[in-house]
């Protein structure tokens, strides 16, 4: 069965790119969120197998949202989406419990390789 993914990014544009990558890679995107607050709500509601999480977002940033999600479910798999130059924030997110990261602009093969590894499919 196709794995379910929640895509979190404040940019619709970026979400579309990531969604297309997942669709082409055989995943089901079951939901999307545009900020950290929404992300936590959607996570509780949809119970995805994996979350991709933007770092910089309004209301609640990706690191706080990741922390909150892991408080809800300590087995949750959260993969950070970061830009070059955000190494310190990514490491903070990993400290907070994120399992991996992808670098924007996202490249299909990188994203799928990371996600498959995280899900233990590769």
């Amino acid at each position: 069965m196709a794995k379910k993914v929640l895509v979190v990014d404040d940019s619709v544009f970026m979400r579309d790119i990531i969604k297309d990558i997942f669709a082409a890679g055989g995943f089901t995107v079951i939901g999307e969120a545009g900020n950290g607050v929404e992300a936590v709500e959607k996570f509780k509601e949809l119970k995805p197998d994996l979350v991709t999480m933007d770092l910089v977002m309004p209301y609640r940033n990706g690191i706080d949202a990741t922390r909150e999600i892991l408080r809800t479910d300590n087995k949750a798999l959260v993969v950070m989406c970061s830009a070059l130059g955000q190494e310190t924030m990514v490491m903070e997110a990993i400290e907070a419990g994120a399992v991996d990261f992808i670098v924007k602009p996202p490249r299909a093969e990188d994203v799928l390789a990371v996600v498959k590894k995280v899900l233990g499919e590769a």
Binding site: S11, V56, P58
Partner: peptide
């Protein structure tokens, strides 16, 4: 808020 807007534009442009 301004920082986030600039950040988003950067990310999109580089994509």
């Amino acid at each position: 808020s301004m920082f986030r807007h600039a950040h988003s534009v950067k990310g999109m442009a580089s994509s």
